[in-house]
Nucleic acid binder design. Structure first.
Lengths: 408, 408
DNA sequence: GGTCTTTATTTAGTCTCTAAATTTATGCTC
DNA sequence: GAGCATAAATTTAGAGACTAAATAAAGACC
């Protein structure tokens, strides 16, 4: 069954991985640093480093430090070769696609966004737009297709823990595009699909308001409302990937804000739905609601409009309800609010924090995301990086074009 | 930081663990079986087995098989030595304590239950009762204290993922007894505390209705109501252990069944609360409710009493509500109902399954536990076994008294 | 008894690690 | 500039653990 097959080479693999992990955490290390961090001998550490250099995952720095007062033979400095390849982070939404290209430390090298042709675009059209955006992003990063070691993709539908789009969901047809099997087959990229809210959670856990918080929920509120759940540092999916899919949740006080929006429309005499903008729809405001631009409502409320303020109040109470239930069932330390509402979520916070203690015995802290509209794509980068880090020793790093002089 | 310290001996450890795991899964194996299962060479496999025999974790069977038509040199047969020690599984409730003694395969060797002196027993009294029950159980299993390799304890309060009783909880003082630091310090037993509903989940996942289901919720309903959450085969705790603590959840239709119970009491003219019996209280029926014997309500309903039927209906709706929320937030494949209501939960199932699809887009399956009132103690055994399996090679198995003839 | 088959054991060789001795590269001192 | 001190790198010897191939053992069958 298990085929553990533990040969002596497995030892070396483990030590390669351990050293690589230390290197990823800091910018440059000496052999002595590695001895301390791993507990291995100097001889072993050096052998492992040379091995990693030969494999392309590590490079040796030539002019390592400032002119400090140093004694003894100068140390060799090693660093994780973050240019050994790159990863893609995609946010594929209903209307737009965003692509990030990042190096192996996660630094963004290029960013592209594209709008899909028409609202009901065919799968082929969507695939073409996505691939075009990827090509453009790679080109502007100065990288070729072979440099890509993995691609993470966030989609607005249910995805199970094996990365398969759940077939039953209403939105599944828009996102089950078979990118790995059809378009990108020739490149051989590992393609990792994940729900957008889950990726938002990965992003916040990595470099956002939830950094270092291992029991974390991120609430992605905009067109849809979804939550990404992290417990003990791990994403939760549930049996078919539906964990955190609170869009279907019927809450008592969410009904009937249609009046408010209609009044808003009469009062301001304007098109409520600016095409392509982040919108709020019924998941958030309540059933039976017209789509409305998020920016518009927040601006109206800021200008003192009573109907808009009422909508905000309603949204705040609805979110408080959901957060309270999350607190009861999952007991996260922190809930981060992201997505379209994040830019103005400060207006919602008072309502939410006022309601919470009444609704839950273990209310979590609430914070607002600072990652903006790249939150999902950033999480997709993290997902791809996780894959690369996990499978590094099984992958072949993309060797950069060698300097011919180095060969003489 | 990490101190991976990967010496060649680590290899052997890994292979010891791999072989041991294979042996735990089946009753007796030959060298050839192990070669297939692990991918190691015969020479290595035999060396590992001899090593394990020397350490006491494995024993060699002398008369291995029935008289089958066998060719070639007869194989040696190895088996996991399930008598290399035992584990304790405790269910410490408000009124009673239950102790299971099990061998390393999980077979129950002895069982004891004791009632605590008075309802408001002091911590010292409770400790004494628990220790007495343990001693009695060990004695009736014919084992001494050194045979115990680990003790799992289920308690009716919040416990975080490190096994510490959360101090804030209302019931914490009854369960934060410091057994490992005070009473059992001399024995050096690893003591593993865990919430009772979580242990019920472990039990169902191990050998109950949820066997093989890796996304599972167990709802322990009786005096309190609590849920144990398993996602991808792992228990969820949340940041402070409060995950699944739904007792504080206020649901709209749970209020005001006091009338029903009062009517029941008038009608049947009996003491509703049989002392020490499993009871249903406000967590389940609703706030403002007298405690009432679970058995009594179910019997009355079965006899056609309308007020009792009304209570059951109410309980069913309340549980359906909770299960629906669990389905939405966690998307388990299955919810198992256990605890005091389990024995008659078949009467609740129709109400629950009728309500569920209306309340959740991803309704889980619902089943009733068959593990009876040992569900928590069984889970405690599983918890202790998990610990032993994880740390086997670091523990010293209890050597049984050697047969003197074997030494000649 | 001889042969066949399967298992167990032995032997030689490889890989990886540690520990200790040795070499190397640099700064500092005289 | 020669010599010394120092820390890093390398070399060497040795041990543990594995594989692969040869050899030995134990029973069944003729």
């Amino acid at each position: 069954m298990d085929k553990t097959a533990t040969t002596p080479q497995v030892l070396r693999r483990a030590n390669l991985a351990a050293v690589l992990e230390v290197m990823r955490a800091s910018s440059a290390v000496t052999g002595t640093d590695l001895i301390e961090a791993t507990g291995l001998t100097r001889a072993t550490v050096i052998a492992v480093c040379d091995d990693l250099i030969r494999r392309g995952w590590v490079r040796e720095l030539q002019a390592p430090k400032g002119p400090g007062p140093q004694k003894g033979r100068p140390a060799r400095y090693f660093a994780f070769n973050d240019a050994a390849g790159c990863v893609l982070g995609l946010d594929v939404g209903m209307a737009t696609v965003t692509v990030l290209v990042a190096d192996l430390k996660g630094r963004v090298l290029a960013r592209t966004s594209k709008r899909f042709a028409k609202e009901p675009a065919t799968a082929a059209q969507r695939r073409a737009t996505i691939t075009h955006a990827v090509d453009q992003a790679l080109a502007s990063a100065g990288l070729g297709h072979p440099a890509v070691l993995a691609a993470g993709i966030g989609v607005s539908t249910v995805v199970d823990r094996h990365g398969n789009v759940a077939p039953g969901h209403r939105l599944a047809p828009y996102f089950d595009l078979g990118l790995q099997t059809e378009v990108w087959k020739e490149y051989g990229w590992p393609v990792l699909l994940e729900n957008d809210a889950n990726l938002a959670a990965l992003a916040e856990h990595w470099c956002g308001a939830g950094a270092g918080v291992d029991d974390l929920v991120v609430m992605l509120a905009g067109e849809r409302i979804g939550t990404g759940l992290i417990e003990s540092g791990r994403l939760l999916h549930g049996s078919s990937g539906g964990a955190g899919e609170v869009g279907t949740l019927e809450l008592v006080d969410g009904v009937g804000s249609h009046d408010g929006i209609a009044r808003l429309a009469r009062r301001w005499g304007t098109e409520l739905l600016a095409s392509g903008e982040p919108t709020l729809i019924r998941d958030l405001v309540g059933p039976g609601t017209t789509r409305v631009s998020a920016r518009f409502v927040f601006e109206a409320a800021a200008a003192g409009d009573a109907a808009a303020a009422d909508i905000l109040e309603r949204i705040g109470r609805r979110m408080a309800r959901i957060i309270a239930l999350l607190g009861t069932f999952l007991n996260p330390e922190l809930v981060v609010i992201g997505g379209a509402v994040a830019s103005s979520a400060a207006m919602l916070l008072p309502t939410i924090t006022a309601e919470l203690p009444r609704l839950s015995g273990t209310p979590p802290q609430v914070a607002v995301s600072g990652l903006g509209d790249a939150i999902v794509a950033t999480g997709a980068v993290r997902l791809a990086l996780d894959y690369v880090e996990q499978n590094a020793l099984g992958l072949t790093p993309a060797q950069p074009q060698q300097d011919p002089r180095a060969l003489s």
